[in-house]
Design a protein around this nucleic acid. Structure first.
Length: 245
RNA sequence: AGUCAUG
């Protein structure tokens, strides 16, 4: 019957991944073949628990058993690898995906950008962003946040800032999170002046700073010992009815 | 039915 149902159900909660894995083993003993949906559930479950080698092994198993691969399986695997700082490996998986003729989608690139951000690969991230264009895959606000974060995390805050200006000029979709990712990159390089201007601009444009915005800025104030701006920011926070951390 | 962004 439906082992699929059991496996999928247990994959939802990260605590129960081992149980899901057991059910899958039973499934296999009975000669049933898990499908791509089952595998992607298990791969993302392994990812949540840091079991990246197991996640990779699941892909190998799919290949051995000739289970049809799809974009979600690869996305789940890239995510699993990326979140545990295996950006290089995530990129290799991306290449294999293309080699096997599975078309990457917008999520694939978002996930890759996050993976590369975690290992500080700004240059590679920019290449991915450009490749996306070439393949005719439309970026979203999630993509913009990810690429700006990737640049900032890789010590390219000024490049991030330039890209941000270009996107704003083109009136691309934006969100508070996107502004925050830019601020994070500027903060990493102790660029208090620029960060504060960006903060003011963000407000003028109608994007409400949130708790993350203030957290980034207040940490930066501490790093550069700017007490005056701490006072100003705290008063802005109160005006916005946000609690200090 | 399964995969994404900011401290």
């Amino acid at each position: 019957w439906s082992y699929h149902y059991l496996v999928h159900g247990y994959c939802k909660s990260s605590k129960r991944i081992s149980r899901a894995m057991r059910y899958m083993k039973e499934m296999k003993k009975r000669g049933l073949t898990p499908d791509a949906v089952t595998y992607s559930c298990l791969i993302s479950g392994c990812g949540r628990r840091g079991k990246t080698d197991e996640a990779l092994e699941l892909l190998e198993e799919m290949k051995r058993k000739n289970v049809a691969l799809d974009v979600v399986v690869f996305n789940a695997l890239i995510h699993a690898l990326g979140r545990w700082k295996r950006g290089k490996r995530a990129f290799l998986v991306f290449q294999e995906m293309r080699y096997r003729g599975i078309q990457p989608d917008e999520w694939t690139f978002n996930l890759l950008l996050n993976a590369l951000a975690k290992v500080g690969e700004a240059q590679a991230g920019l290449k991915m962003f450009n490749m996306m264009k070439r393949l005719g895959i439309a970026p979203s606000v999630v993509t913009y946040t990810a690429v700006i974060d990737c640049l900032g995390a890789g010590g390219q805050a000024l490049a991030a800032y330039k890209l941000h200006n270009k996107l704003l000029a083109r009136r691309e979709a934006y969100s508070t999170r996107t502004w925050n990712s830019l601020l994070k990159g500027l903060a990493k390089e102790d660029r208090m002046g620029m960060a504060y201007l960006v903060y003011q601009r963000m407000r003028r444009r109608g994007y409400e700073p949130d708790r993350v915005t203030y957290s980034i800025l207040l940490d930066l104030c501490t790093a550069v010992r700017d007490l005056k701006k701490v006072v100003q920011l705290q008063s802005d926070m109160r005006a916005a009815e946000l609690e200090p951390d």
